[in-house]
Computed example of a mutant assay.
Amino acid sequence: MLSDEQLLRYSRQIMLPDVDINGQETWLNSTVLIVGLGGLGSPVAMYLAAAGVGELVLLDDDDVELSNLQRQVIHNTKRIGQPKVDSARNTIAALNPDIRVKTIYERLDESALQRLIATVDLVVDCTDNFSTRFAINRACFQHKKPLVSGAAIRMEGQVAVYDPLTLGSPCYQCLYKEGSDEALTCSESGVLSPLVGIIGSIQAMEALKVLASVGESLAGRLMLLDAKSMEWRTLKLRKDPHCTVCSHAAMAVHEHKQGDD
């Protein structure tokens, strides 16, 4: 049951027929894991908090640096040297004090990541390295949790949703194979500040849509942005029938192992 204050705070969303009271209550009762509190994680965390996602789990092992502030808008100059998760929690508390925030200031190994992802409703991947993305993808499909993935570098960005609950939806590994080039990071290649805001905002939008079953998600599609010419492309993604993560054979093996545990 929404309080009077919540009805007022979220009134512009509640008046949307696709959302209504039920959608808002779904968000308030949801738990979302955000992996990475940098350029993408900043708008994701702030918009999900503002929209009323009830619990945010923030995972990042980095501290705030001066070079982050050009694009990581959840942090500020006074917080240089602080853990990013603590800085992000302070911003969220000022934005919407009703939101529960759990912070994890470490780099989790895959088994710990598996246990964590099993406890949430949805994961937003805002990381910038392939090994972590593959580990997140594996955990999401093994525990049947929707994954909203984003990437941004230089003046190019992309967003996709990988949803084990959507029939025929591919996973991240259907698109990229392990062993991909990990040198493509913002620190190595640069990035234009508003680009991460655009991509992160779309990730937040997709997360809200998936949680409350609003509209049609990007499951099975990849959105690509060339910000230099401001052109968007949307590609349809095919499920790899031989994928070691999301194919029927791979999922059956995992379910069999879970049954043995």
Rank of each mutant, 00 (worst) to 15 (best):
V253I: 07
P170D: 00
M205Q: 08
S3H: 14
M205A: 12
I34F: 05
I153H: 02
L147P: 04
K236F: 00
Q13S: 02
V148Y: 02
G259D: 12
F141A: 06
K209A: 09
A227I: 00
D109S: 12
G36Q: 09
D163P: 05
Q114L: 14
P170F: 00
V35D: 06
D60Q: 04
K84L: 08
P97L: 08
V35R: 14
A227F: 01
S111M: 05
A249G: 01
H75N: 07
T127Y: 10
E182K: 10
H75R: 06
Q203N: 14
V120E: 15
A49C: 05
L95E: 15
S87A: 10
L208K: 12
S169Q: 03
A135H: 03
Q72S: 04
A219Q: 00
A139D: 02
D121Q: 15
G197V: 07
F141M: 07
R154M: 12
S189Y: 11
D63Y: 07
Y172I: 00
L165W: 08
Q70W: 03
I202Y: 14
W27N: 09
K257I: 12
T26F: 09
I80V: 13
G81P: 02
L192S: 14
A94K: 05
G215V: 09
A151G: 03
I92T: 09
G39C: 06
F130P: 00
L224N: 03
C246M: 00
I92E: 05
Y162F: 06
K228T: 13
Y10K: 11
S247L: 02
K78F: 11
L108T: 12
C140Y: 06
A207Q: 08
T26P: 08
T119N: 14
R154N: 13
R79T: 14
N96G: 07
Y105W: 13
S229I: 06
I14M: 13
Y176V: 00
M251T: 09
I99E: 12
K84P: 12
A135G: 01
D121S: 15
E55N: 11
W232E: 02
A250Q: 04
P170W: 01
R12A: 15
K209C: 02
L108N: 13
V35Y: 15
Q82V: 10
K144S: 03
R133G: 05
I202L: 15
I34Q: 05
V35A: 14
T26K: 12
A93E: 02
T132F: 03
L69F: 06
V196N: 15
A152E: 02
R238E: 01
L175Y: 04
G220F: 01
V245R: 02
V214T: 08
E65Y: 04
C174F: 03
P164R: 00
Q72Y: 01
S187Y: 02
N29F: 09
